[in-house]
Design a protein around this nucleic acid. Sequence first.
DNA 1: CTGATTTTTGTTAAAAAGTTACAAGAAGGT
DNA 2: ACCTTCTTGTAACTTTTTAACAAAAATCAG
Lengths: 284, 284
Amino acid sequence: MNILEKITQHKLAFSKSERKVAEVILANPQVAIHSSIATLAKMSDVSEPTVNRFCRRLDTKGYPDFKLHLAQSLANGTPYVNRHVEEDDGPEEYTKKIFESTMASLEVARQSVDINTINRVVDLLTQAQKISFFGLGASASVAHDALNKFFRFNVPVVYFEDILMQRMSCMNSSEDDVVVLISHTGRTKSLVEVAQIARSNDATVVGITSQNSPLAKECNLVLSLEVPEDTDMYMPMASRIAQLTLIDILATGFTLRRGTKFRENLKRVKDTLRGSRYDKRNEQ
Amino acid sequence: MNILEKITQHKLAFSKSERKVAEVILANPQVAIHSSIATLAKMSDVSEPTVNRFCRRLDTKGYPDFKLHLAQSLANGTPYVNRHVEEDDGPEEYTKKIFESTMASLEVARQSVDINTINRVVDLLTQAQKISFFGLGASASVAHDALNKFFRFNVPVVYFEDILMQRMSCMNSSEDDVVVLISHTGRTKSLVEVAQIARSNDATVVGITSQNSPLAKECNLVLSLEVPEDTDMYMPMASRIAQLTLIDILATGFTLRRGTKFRENLKRVKDTLRGSRYDKRNEQ
DNA sequence: CTGATTTTTGTTAAAAAGTTACAAGAAGGT
DNA sequence: ACCTTCTTGTAACTTTTTAACAAAAATCAG
């Protein structure tokens, strides 16, 4: 795939002049991508068609195509990696690491999430009479955020931080209600109990949690997110961001399902805020 | 850096025809890098020089140079681009787009954030007698999350969703208190007023908001995040994720500043939860 | 070692791609 | 409605790349 490696491998298959071209490119690929075929030919002390032949031998269509491949190989192929913050990291390092770890976790989450389940959950949500979002600890703020999104849709939405309120709310739920339970580990006892209560009242229980956890087993549908554990600081960080992104996705799916006219409604909801805000023009 | 991102940002600065070119490229960048300027012009229904001008506007030397940049952006490593969800996107598309937009926004945020300010805010927080986190609407859940992180540090932390409580809390603040106000736009009147109250009581006010906003002007320190506006769904999405990441960073900075022994404390806080959870072994 | 054959390389010319200059047209302001 | 400014396209031109062919080098059989 990487063209530079390919050049190195092919090296013996090249003719003498072609090898000269290879040397020049390997010595300074950054220069090569900004040179014309004429310049590169001169640098390698060969003729222009030789450079062209060199490119073709590497299964590219010609010199411009070769440059494209080279450019791609040279683009820093350092995808975001989960790097842990170290004891003696300064602000610059830890800021960078946290941003990158977060992005890396999102990438992992993206690959692990099951589109089918998302679709089914969106289905359920659009048909629900009442939607509840419950979480505890760090997941409480995720549920809180979900409330903030879904209440705009003009559907009855419920959110409680208090375990007792959660239980009572589920006790009163019925067949057409959807209860979304959020927990990274899926091992919080009281949330598992909430799931049981909700199910015994015929509500549909959706879990945003990790697969095969006790909570997952009590749910009708599980949206599992395989996010690397947040061991760094003994605080949930990336898991929570992934959960929030999932909420965004569900909310988006919801609005798309409801069609254009519904979206105008959302705009109106947003516009209502105008009175509570300083006008943009007031700024300077 | 990423040219696709750049195109999206510049979009409004483009002329009508240039925007046509932008659309075509964003819709299918893979095709673009393999097209000649003539083909691309035809696809966009503009003239060739227009395509050329489009490239120049993005600070490239011309079309070939632009293609090089584009190829690099498309190479693995920085594939994330802010792409908007379309009316007829299926679950697969919108899931992908939202994940990628979120990552792209984080990348933008990372580059825009000022490390020095972060460091100063961490300083302030470690020295604070009391820390308050206030936000309204979508930012309320961010403040909520901040509460969840900082209360573990054994510092008095305050969080209210209620405007009156926020005001009263600030009224009682004193010189050694830090008030962190979160608002994407920075134009929410009541939050600006909270900032004023806090300052008139000698508290230090830190804003997580956009630069030059009315709120920013009332703050002692502003942590600005330049995140592309979430116009898609009339709901705050990426901005909020960036804010949360910033909270993570501040929390991390805080714990690092406090040293190793302090971190053992955090572990103890986390371990306290054990009783409320199903043991990992109970699972199967 | 010689001559035939194949392979490699360079020269020349043509084609393709990209760029410049300029003029026509659209948009915006007075 | 007129002037100015900004956009856009046409046409000419330059650069870059590729094709065709021929010369040179290398390989091999006898």
